[in-house]
Simulated scan of single mutants.
Amino acid sequence: MMIVDLVDEVDFKERLIALGAPVTSEQSLPEVQEAVLSWLQQYPEQTPFIKDLCLSMQKENTTVLPEVYQVMAAFS
């Protein structure tokens, strides 16, 4: 049996929340994207942390759902 590490919408939101991003688990991915981009405009010093999060999820041996990947790409 093969086990795949999958980053889905829930995982992504949890990781953003852990970084202090103003995101809730109830928000849709477009709402998350808008909230984080707005937050990064107000607090640009947080940008490296968001970028590191996205890079680490891409480098790890994980599968990122396409809709999550689209949001991650908006943070690059």
Rank of each mutant, 00 (worst) to 15 (best):
T63Q: 11
D52L: 06
V23A: 07
W39G: 05
V10M: 06
L16G: 01
P44T: 00
A35D: 04
P30M: 11
A18T: 00
N61D: 08
L65T: 14
L29W: 01
Q42C: 01
Y43P: 01
E26I: 11
Q41A: 14
Q46Y: 11
F49A: 13
P66Q: 10
S25V: 09
A18E: 04
Q42T: 04
E31S: 12
P66G: 08
P44Y: 07
L29P: 10
V68D: 10
L40S: 08
I50D: 10
L53N: 10
F12C: 00
Q46M: 12
S38I: 05
P30D: 07
Q42M: 03
W39N: 02
T47A: 15
E67T: 06
S25Q: 12
E9D: 15
R15A: 15
T47K: 10
F49P: 00
K13A: 13
I50V: 15
V23Q: 12
V32T: 13
Q27H: 03
Y43M: 06
L53P: 04
I17N: 09
S56T: 04
Q27V: 02
Q58H: 11
S56D: 15
N61M: 07
L65C: 09
L29H: 08
E67P: 00
W39Y: 15
V23Y: 09
P30I: 02
L16P: 10
E60H: 04
P66D: 14
Y69R: 05
Q27R: 06
Q58V: 07
D11S: 13
Q27P: 06
I50S: 08
I50K: 03
K59Y: 15
W39I: 01
T24R: 13
G20D: 09
D52F: 10
I17D: 11
P44I: 00
L65F: 02
Q46K: 11
L37N: 13
F49K: 15
K13R: 07
T62E: 10
Q33R: 15
C54W: 07
Q33F: 08
V36E: 05
C54K: 01
G20T: 12
N61K: 13
C54Q: 02
V23W: 06
K13Q: 13
K51A: 03
A35I: 05
Q58A: 12
L37H: 13
E60T: 01
P22N: 03
R15Q: 12
E14C: 06
S56G: 09
E45F: 04
L53G: 14
T62K: 14
N61C: 01
K51F: 05
P22S: 09
K59L: 14
E31A: 09
T47M: 11
P30F: 07
E34M: 13
S38T: 14
L40D: 02
E34F: 14
Y43G: 03
E34Q: 08
K59I: 12
E9T: 12
L37R: 15
Q58E: 14
P66H: 04
V68H: 08
S28T: 14
S38R: 04
A35E: 05
E14R: 04
V23T: 15
S56W: 10
I50W: 00
